[in-house]
Nucleic acid binder design. Sequence first.
DNA 1: TTGAAAGCGCTAACAG
DNA 2: CTGTTAGCGCTTTCAA
Lengths: 331, 331
Amino acid sequence: MAATIRDVARLAGVSTSTVSRALSVPELVNAATRAKVQSAAASLGYAPNRAARGLITGRTGNLGLVLPDLANPFFPSVVKGVQARARAADVAVFVADTDEDDLAEIGLVRALAKQVDGLILCSPRSTDDELREIAAETTVVLVNRLVDDLPAVVFDHRDGMRQAVAHLVALGHRRIAWVGGPANSWSSEQRGAGLAAAAAAQGVELVEVGHFPPYYDGGMAAADQVVATGATAVITYNDLVAIGLLGRLHFRGFFVPDDLSVVGIDDIEMAAMARPTLTTVRLPKQQAGRIAVELLLSLLDIPASTERERPAHRALTGELMVRDSTADAAR
Amino acid sequence: MAATIRDVARLAGVSTSTVSRALSVPELVNAATRAKVQSAAASLGYAPNRAARGLITGRTGNLGLVLPDLANPFFPSVVKGVQARARAADVAVFVADTDEDDLAEIGLVRALAKQVDGLILCSPRSTDDELREIAAETTVVLVNRLVDDLPAVVFDHRDGMRQAVAHLVALGHRRIAWVGGPANSWSSEQRGAGLAAAAAAQGVELVEVGHFPPYYDGGMAAADQVVATGATAVITYNDLVAIGLLGRLHFRGFFVPDDLSVVGIDDIEMAAMARPTLTTVRLPKQQAGRIAVELLLSLLDIPASTERERPAHRALTGELMVRDSTADAAR
DNA sequence: TTGAAAGCGCTAACAG
DNA sequence: CTGTTAGCGCTTTCAA
């Protein structure tokens, strides 16, 4: 069995409460006793039982991360960012993949909520109302989603789309197609809106092709419709969709970027491995994960009764990565 | 505050122990009282506090999953399998990504060990000795690694390589190159050995090209050396390496499969998205995750004092996925 | 500055 | 079949 606080107390010749204090609020205990306790703890390899501590403090020291699909390379990056920051704060991370199932999502969130101090919901598929409810029950930070003024980390899609459009305009494109993501995806809506604004501002025509699954297959499905629009360039919901599009275009004998320019969003690693390599808007994924944890931790340190005044959300800027797939393809 | 067992007891008009029993060992309590308790619990939305339960049962109801790199698409598949099975057993999963850092790995494992009932170590980078030590301290199931007779789920690489070689031989290849993974990778060693055996058995010449990082870049790095061997076909440590190889071959003006046939291992989704699509040995990744959880759960049900007799490990068979990248390229 | 005592929410003997 | 009792390992009053 692992050493308990009593073992340490006995070895150090003090009471358990002194051990507890020496280890968690060192300044409250005499330097000499503190040293005795610490060496005793060290020699026994003592580490407090977190469950027992949690029982009394009401803190688990755990954090939950819920996301739609680990198979989409976007999310592992976020996970990495979250883990790196959580680890530094000695917080363990439960990860739950909902498989893009919005019903499963709520269930998972509810189940996780009981075992963690706070939850990070990345690109949640639930409705605003559901998210409000969840946020009322437990501390939550959203990533890639904005609901009222719930704490959130989002990407500045307006700016990202502005960059993408500016790039395409510089290449001579005047008619751009947009392949949207899932209809219930907040970020698809944001990206579409940002794109519409950018297109209007820069005087190019935008053709919306509809909603597609956020996978390779979604891009395959969208390709023929994109071609039919007569657009000379296309921007897709994410890189996976762009790569699927590339696949189908290749199959149909279209050359990218000669016949059509393609721009994705995310900059997953695969974007640089595709052929042609994919031009895309890089989103700071790991950074988003890190900041989400920081936000969550800061929220948790504040007594629930206190009114928060910190900024409710933070927007991260993306940057255009230009690769083969848009090399002057306009006519 | 969430409802406690006392709230339920009061509402149902019974003692807390009856509530406890009614909820966890229903057959030990009278049907009528059981019903009363259950409806009381339901109306209060009661769910037992797992930390409190764990304190007394010694079980956390949690499981830890440690893996080298979530950015490698192989691992998210395993995670999905693990989660699916764990969820069904009402077990939550801590996920820890070591970033391919073998030192970090031990630390993470030690930290996680205190908060879980058991650990699944997927493709661990630690030494055999370290793994033995860990297994002595906590219940562990290895995935994609064999150490003594520690419980493990592995893939049958011998058979996978046999299939790959048979396929290439049928296409007329007589000289096959092997691009190994990291020198300290157990599975690279296994795959290489399986391949050597298969090559010998089927009378083809095998040329080993050395060890490369298990990423796209590793394949890029290996490509020129592969070409220099004069082999007409190449098998790589994993799909990521194969795709990198494809990239470099394309850059150098070689056509796959006309100039060289390529076979990967894993069958990550990207294999079907590459151009040409990649022939590969599909490993049942999710299944491995599921079985690992099952193994772990079954180990945990057995009192620590009892000697286990169950099979120490289970080997899963892979299957060849034939795609464009090997279409009769022999001469 | 330290110790004694009282629980956190739950389960597990042990009686009845 | 059910209630009483006694903790699991820890933190936190409250006194000293």
